[in-house]
Amino acid sequence: MDDTKPHSDDAPPSTWKHGDSLGAAAVSERKDDAIVARAVTINRPVAEVFAYFRDFANLPTFMENVERIDILSDTRSHWVVKAPAGKTVEWDAVVTEETQDSVIAWTSEPGADVANSGRVEFRDAGARGTVVMATIAYDPPAGIVGKLIAKMFQREPAIQARRDLRRFKQLMETGEIATAAMNRKQREEEMA
């Protein structure tokens, strides 16, 4: 396949069958990074999905491990994220590319606890709504050992990306996120 032509596959770059299978040039140029790509179709208009996601203060509502995001400017934000063993990691991120209702790309600034970069694309899927494709590159602390520890504690980005996109879909389509947790009344009835 000629890699100079635009890619026609609408799958996340890491799953492309032909061409630059990592699509990594747009996400990361660091060779040791782990690349994660996930996609979901959300039954809402692309403008609505993009607007909700672009307000970074909304992200902790569906990103389970994000404790908070402080907005520093239109293009910079400070992230505090849960890590294994009750720890947190922090970094400042800068938006490197943005096209209204289409794409948001970012990279962490130097000194990040976890160096990362990524790209989220929003594509109109007609009557089906919006396809959201997230591709994230990250450099796990302590390399492969850190990645294995994160996986054991369910804090590994590949696991979280899938869960977070599923929660984003639920929130955008229904206004709430389904949970298996029992509410107080259910707990009291079970204890009786």
Rank of each mutant, 00 (worst) to 15 (best):
P45C: 04
A51I: 05
V40W: 00
A47Q: 12
R54E: 12
D55T: 12
A39E: 15
A51R: 13
N58S: 10
R54Y: 07
T61Q: 14
P45Q: 12
D55C: 08
N43A: 14
A57C: 08
D33I: 01
A34R: 13
A39T: 13
D33P: 08
F50T: 05
A39S: 15
F62R: 05
D55N: 15
V46K: 06
I35Q: 02
N43I: 04
V40Y: 03
N58V: 04
V36Y: 00
R54A: 15
R54K: 14
R38H: 14
F53H: 13
A47Y: 00
M63F: 14
V49D: 00
I42G: 04
Y52T: 09
L59F: 02
F53V: 10
T41L: 01
R38E: 15
R44V: 07
P60R: 07
R38G: 02
A57G: 14
F50N: 02
F62A: 04
F53R: 03
N43P: 07
P60G: 11
V40D: 06
Y52A: 05
V36W: 05
F50K: 01
V40R: 05
F53P: 03
I35Y: 00
P60H: 09
F50V: 04
A51D: 15
F62D: 05
N43M: 10
A57S: 15
N43D: 13
E48T: 12
P60D: 03
P60V: 06
A57L: 09
V40H: 06
V40C: 07
R54Q: 12
A47P: 03
F56V: 13
V49E: 04
R44F: 06
N43Q: 14
V46C: 06
R54L: 03
D33K: 08
A34I: 10
A39K: 13
N58R: 09
N43C: 11
R38Q: 15
F53W: 15
V40F: 01
A51E: 12
A34Q: 09
D55A: 14
F56A: 04
F50Q: 00
M63V: 10
F56S: 04
F53G: 02
P45N: 13
D55H: 13
F56L: 11
E48C: 07
E48Y: 03
D55R: 14
I42H: 02
E48R: 09
F62I: 09
T61F: 05
I35A: 00
T61G: 06
R54V: 08
R38L: 01
M63S: 14
P60S: 12
D33M: 11
P45E: 12
V36E: 06
F62H: 10
I35K: 02
R54D: 14
N43R: 14
T41S: 07
R38T: 12
